[in-house]
Computed example of a mutant assay.
Amino acid sequence: MAESALDNVATVHVEKKASKLAAFAKFRELGLLIFIILLCIFVQTRNSSFLTIGNLTDMITNTAILSILALGMMLVIITRGIDLSIGSTLALSGMIVAQTVSVYQGLHPIVAILIGIGIGLVCGVTIGFFVSKIGVLPIIATLAMMNIFRGLTFTVSNGQWVSSYQMPDSFVSIATSKILGINTLVFIAIVIYIIGFYFVNHTRTGRQIYAVGSNPESAKVSGINQTKILLMVYSIMGGLAGLSGVLWVAKFASAQGDTAAGYELTVIAACILGGVSIAGGSGKISGVILGAILLGILNNSLPLMNVSPFWQMAIQGSIILFAVILNALVKRGVERNNLLRRKI
């Protein structure tokens, strides 16, 4: 009797712990939002210039490109993949477009954007082919293509930069112009997220992406074409990276061979902070947006507080590590909660 009572107490304790973690999973984005608000208040107390209109506008603009890339990376990670080549794809797209507009000064900015997206799509389809058709592990395929795309960037540029004075004002103005009173970069990011939200939550293909990441075997038995899904998500990622290359070059008014080197790690970090499971199968667009915003705030606020660049990296790394641990605990809690429900 005594042992039975102890077992019941232990079971109740496990159930409560699992239920709490499962409940936290439902409101994770709210918790992240509260953390961002508290962080903003703290930074403002340390530097009154943080919440000024000028600084906030600059911060949001800087975060726009990161958020666009994070959306594509979310889709890739949900399918249990990874893309380490996006920084190189961005650089290659940006370099070719910069060279093109420097020669054809009258080229319309929309045409330049389409060229960049096209280059990114070619890169993404290439990676998707190796991953979906050949069966190469995503980390191996994208690591190899990262170096190939970066090498192509240096090859087409001959190691030379394309500077702002070589680009037409109409192209550079992509980053400074406004649409409906909103900065063009931010407007493009908003449009992409609206499309992405509808695609993920209200289309059959969007649900299939989650199914492939949650349980590939079950998805295969259900008749889902995994080859098509994998090829599609890497193509989307490539297209968004190509678009980001054009926006990056327009914003910084220069194209270099080492543009966005290592930026893929920042994009992955934004996804992890936003609650996207590196094991695949779970992730929300709202979380990815908040993850990108949090990184944008950290990149902007730490220099304002005169934090050493070395400590900036350590602080960001610590926050990412905390997010990974929290994601693992939440996932374990959800799994335990589901298991207990099945037993009941």
Rank of each mutant, 00 (worst) to 15 (best):
K133W: 12
K133Q: 14
K133G: 08
K133M: 13
I134F: 05
V136K: 00
P138F: 10
A141F: 06
A141Y: 06
T142H: 04
L143C: 11
M146F: 01
M146H: 01
M146K: 04
N147D: 10
I148P: 00
I148N: 01
F149N: 03
G151P: 02
T153S: 05
F154R: 10
V156A: 09
N158W: 11
G159P: 02
V162P: 01
V162Y: 01
S164F: 03
Q166F: 01
F171L: 00
I174E: 00
A175L: 00
T176R: 03
S177G: 12
I179D: 07
I179W: 11
G181H: 05
I188R: 07
A189G: 07
I192R: 06
G196V: 12
F199N: 09
F199Y: 14
V200C: 13
V200N: 08
N201W: 06
T203I: 13
T205V: 14
G206R: 05
G206W: 04
Q208W: 07
Q208H: 12
I209H: 03
Y210L: 11
A211I: 09
S214G: 15
S218M: 15
K220G: 15
V221N: 14
V221H: 14
G223H: 05
N225E: 13
N225D: 15
T227I: 13
I229E: 07
L230A: 11
L231P: 02
S235T: 15
S235N: 06
I236S: 02
M237N: 08
G239I: 10
L240I: 13
A241T: 07
G242W: 04
L243A: 07
V246L: 07
L247H: 06
W248R: 04
A250Q: 00
K251L: 05
A253G: 00
Q256C: 02
D258L: 11
D258K: 09
T259Y: 00
A260S: 11
Y263S: 12
L265E: 12
A269M: 13
A269G: 13
